[in-house]
Amino acid sequence: MRRFWQRLWKKSKPAGVALIVLFLLYATALLANFLSPYPYERQFREYSLCPPTRIHFIDSQGRFHLRPFVYGITVVNPAFKRYREDHTRLYPIKFFAEGRRRILGVEPPGKIFLLGTDLHGRDIFSRILHGARISLSIGLIGVSISFLLGLIIGGVSGYFGGRLDTVLMRLVEIIMTFPSFYLLLALRASFKPNISSLQLYLLIVIIMSLIGWASLARIIRGMVLSLKEEEFVMASRSLGLSTFRIITRHILPNTFSYTVTALTLSIPGYILGESTLSLLGLGIQEPYPSWGNMLSICVGNLRILTLAPWMLTPGLCIFVTVMCFNFLGDGLREVMDPRNW
């Protein structure tokens, strides 16, 4: 592990940074409950579309406070969502302000909205932390299932060849002939809309895996085909090893490095797939947040978009995550390339 890290850092600094950022992102997602100031579904109706709360060290009298604080928020115009800082009320930021379970916050009635609030007055920062759980986990789970499917189908197709290979590869070809977005929506349409949140989450993963296995299967089949002819496989066959043993002990380990790179680079596709479905209202449903469905209110809603551009921050989160995976994948490719060792 340490050697791997050293090599990654030496080959590609961006990949190293990306790995750290990803680690932090996944850690925040795990600790979402603890790190977020409010529960994700808590609505402050009177503070709908409130801009991000500013954190101060110096108050209106010019006095310096060692402990950062926020001012109270006054509603100026509820219709046009105009808010003003109330300089008479001052709330210091405290550890465990709202009970033992949340690390940061301010004493009520003070409010702290680090990234502003949405239409229902929910804290966007808290929702982003919780949404990260969906968006970040779905990439890993989706890739795992697709990979399993691709591995089995591609491996079988490449190893046995013949008619089975022909049929499976035609299927792959057909799936890849559809633009993935069309296929995503069509598959979504064929399942009933009214199901529970957990079912929906699984459904999204399954739908994306049904699309994603095709390209992975093709990659794996190609690798198996080229490896099958390699001498060491021939050698183990002449030793009388079983097919299963040849596949699991000899072919798969040799495709490992290439596969890890391909998988890392395909994770963004799953993250984007989920956010796209949720963005269009076909994925994770309210009140549970995902980075995609937090953006859905902005689609075609110019008023909200211009009034509250901070609503777009989940998009930035998706961008950062996708970029990290891209950097990491490119870095891994460099590191794993045997010619670079």
């Binding site: 963004p268 956010s275 953006l295 978009l305 998706i318």
Partner: peptide, 29 residues
């Protein structure tokens, strides 16, 4: 280019819509 590759297309579209709505230079929709 790296930023461009990593930006989701829907997010780019949203940002452009936001800019267009702010500046009113381009018709939207």
């Amino acid at each position: 280019a790296y930023v461009g590759i990593s930006l989701p297309s829907f997010f780019i579209a949203m940002l452009l819509v936001f800019l267009a709505a702010r500046t009113m230079v381009l018709p939207i929709g």
